[in-house]
Simulated scan of single mutants.
Amino acid sequence: MTTFPTARNVRTTPEGLVWEPGERWVRGRKGEVTVVDRRHPVLVWEPDVPVPLYAFPRDEVCQDLLRPAKNPPTGTHTGSRIFYDLVADGELSENAAWTFPADDLSGHIAFEWFSRVGRGLDRWYEEEEEIFIHPRDPHKRVDALASSRHVTVEIDGTVVADTHRPVLLFETGLPTRYYIPREDVRLDLFKPTDHSTGCPYKGTAAYWSWSGGAEVPPNVVWTYPRPLPAVGAIRDLLAFYNEAVDITVDGDRLDRPTTVFSAHTAAGRTLPRPPTPSAS
């Protein structure tokens, strides 16, 4: 009889790393070359980094593709001192892999994600589904639920959206986002931008900026034209950063939340990709 734990099987190292065994079949590729293939990888959280990485036993990694790094970085990845350059598919990727200093993880190798830092492995799969940016945290949720709440959005006193058919997106660690049909948004008051972000839970977002005179940060509105299947209900709907606009739900005006975006909204800067599970 199999007994499943009721609590997370989490371990902590003296260096401040948090890790636990994973259950997903994970493959990482560079171009057309499979660099790692593992049924039970380890998920590792570094101090002050809320998203995890995968680490793999050495014998599950194509070590003949790795070379000792010529220019290893310092002060990265929790004091790691051993870095590797990756040579795969005819391309050199510097400092693409490393080992953690923790004794618990000394037999494991971790890899950078190209879509997150611009180097490392560029294609990742969990089971048969391609994933992006970073591993999805098994202890976080993203739920998109159709609703009949009355939601309005105002910018500088102008109502820019009014709907009774929003989709509410609940995501661990972020405020509720209200996705609104385009027909219920004054999209003529905004202009599309070339900004985009990627989210491992939702997909790739496109953005619009406010074209009025109020001090509103760029890229305050976004949409997912091709969301991942788990949140397909938000396809082509529009959402606003709660931190930068005034949202009223069923007659109650919401407080503007304080999040990683808040300093950027106050300064009128482009809203960043957050160090949380998702981009928006």
Rank of each mutant, 00 (worst) to 15 (best):
N9S: 13
V10W: 15
R11G: 03
T13N: 06
G16I: 12
V18N: 14
P21A: 08
P21D: 13
W25M: 08
R27L: 08
G28S: 11
V36K: 01
V42L: 02
L43V: 03
V44R: 06
P47R: 08
Y54P: 14
D59S: 06
E60T: 07
C62T: 11
P68M: 00
N71K: 08
N71W: 10
G75Y: 07
H77T: 13
G79R: 09
S80T: 08
I82R: 15
L86E: 04
V87Q: 14
N95R: 04
A97I: 02
W98L: 10
T99V: 05
S106Q: 14
G107N: 10
F111K: 13
F114D: 06
V117R: 01
G120M: 02
G120I: 00
G120Y: 03
D122Q: 05
D122L: 09
W124V: 15
Y125H: 09
E128R: 08
E129I: 12
E130S: 01
I131T: 14
I133E: 03
D137I: 06
P138M: 15
H139R: 13
V142N: 10
D143R: 12
A144G: 08
L145M: 03
R149Y: 11
H150V: 04
V151R: 15
T152Y: 04
I155G: 10
I155C: 06
T158D: 12
V159C: 04
H164I: 15
H164N: 13
R165K: 10
F170Q: 09
E171K: 10
G173C: 02
L174H: 12
T176Q: 05
D184S: 14
D184A: 15
D188T: 04
L189Y: 05
T193S: 07
T197N: 10
T197W: 09
G198P: 00
G203L: 12
W208M: 04
S209A: 05
S209N: 00
W210N: 03
G212A: 06
V216T: 12
P217I: 00
P218H: 14
P218M: 07
V221M: 08
R226E: 09
P227F: 02
L228P: 00
P229M: 04
V231W: 00
I234N: 01
R235Q: 14
L238M: 05
N242L: 07
A244S: 06
D246K: 07
R253P: 01
L254C: 05
L254F: 03
D255C: 08
R256I: 02
T258K: 10
T259V: 00
T259G: 02
S262Y: 06
S262P: 05
T265L: 08
R273F: 03
